[in-house]
Nucleic acid binder design. Structure first.
Lengths: 211, 211
DNA sequence: GTCAATGTTGATCATCTGATCAGTCCGTGA
DNA sequence: TCACGGACTGATCAGATGATCAACATTGAC
């Protein structure tokens, strides 16, 4: 959290602007946000945004790069190539959820970016993460921990999709469960359910619930 | 596709406007779309939009209601309360995917609506669908066709989330599979994989791939 | 201390956008 | 036939918005 209304020789008004832009963009999207909103939120003049980032597109792109880099750094360090497959898939899944949970603005920004379309570096961004994660799952498949009736990449996609949906659709989930009088599980319990879904399904090797 | 440049006593310019609005809103979202764009796309004057719908919000809401009603009608008729559980879950899942596949504009509009936040009737909208679908899954669970280690509502949510992700993230999916040199399955094959995921997992009752 | 480069502001511009409104056109019912 | 109401248009308005620019402040190199 950067200080607002920075003392003059603040090292980096630039960072304050980026932080403000993340906040405003994530709430209203590209077209809904205004340069004035962002400037006010950052506590600087509007002209300064153009001085540092050229135009609105430039600012949007910088915000996107910042978020991608931050996310990658946070998640990738948990996906060590030499980790034992025993608990590593669960650990990675929990870390993945934790990031988006702790950075709801970044989460929404990515949804906006998906729709706004101005994101052709998307695959480039996820490439390095895939190259770390997929072998992890392959090893877990080889160890009999993860079902091997589908490619490792698909397992990864399924886990990622469900975590994302879990985070942005609590309302729908609550509603669907309410039909039978159930209540949504906790975040950790949900991860356990996911791991059970993709766990090896021959009776014996079935995943035991965590303690 | 409504005729552009309608002859004067055209029964319904109103519908032409709604169709145009679906198109334009789905591409650019609420703030990105302009009343002029929509008017031009519909082949009418801009003033007419305000005459029929009051303001931009009014038009946005009408479009939302139109899409929701259309979707419900399309999907719900496949979910007969008296259907046998044998193939009904698969049929419903295929129909669900088919709708969004055939109506990509409606699909994108719903994503926009999720982000724009102007949608508190969302749960109301999905309620009737839940009340039809959940019992369907419960019966399939009782018949030993669907895994019963999680509530029926959660099975529904998981299937829905994966179909949606499947539709809007083909790029990510292709990338993740490319790591191991795999290619994405067809739509139908993907549905089969999903049913295998949530299928009862005791060796015997396992779901056999379709023909 | 001087000076150039960079950071920063506030005012201003041109354009876009949602909304309004007077007025025209057409069908309909008395 | 006439009058009325609704559909529709085209021009126009007021406000918002992205961008520009001249002027001032600050920093750091020499």
């Amino acid at each position: 959290m950067p200080e607002l209304r920075p003392i003059y020789p603040l090292a980096d008004a630039r960072n304050a602007i980026i932080e403000a832009a993340i906040t405003v963009f994530s709430v209203r999207g590209f077209h809904g946000a205004t340069m004035r909103d962002i400037a006010e939120q950052a506590g600087v003049s509007q002209g300064l945004l153009h001085h540092h980032f050229g135009n609105k597109d430039g600012l949007w792109n910088i915000v996107g790069e910042r978020i991608s880099a931050d996310f990658l750094e946070y998640v990738a360090q948990e996906i060590a190539p030499d980790a034992s497959p025993e608990e590593s898939v669960g650990r990675a899944a929990r870390r993945y959820m934790a990031y988006w949970k702790e950075h709801p603005a970044a989460f929404r920004f990515n949804l906006w970016r998906l729709l706004e379309g101005r994101t052709e570096e998307r695959s480039k961004r996820s490439k390095s993460l895939n190259e770390r994660s997929v072998p992890l799952i392959q090893r877990a498949q080889a160890a009999g921990l993860i079902r091997d009736d589908m490619p490792a990449g698909l397992v990864l996609i399924i886990l990622g999709a469900l975590v994302q949906f879990w985070l942005h659709s609590q309302i729908e989930i609550t509603d669907a469960l309410a039909v039978t009088g159930d209540v949504p599980p906790s975040d950790d319990a949900f991860i356990e359910i996911l791991l059970g879904l993709v766990g090896a399904q021959d009776g014996k090797a079935k995943r035991k619930p965590k303690k």
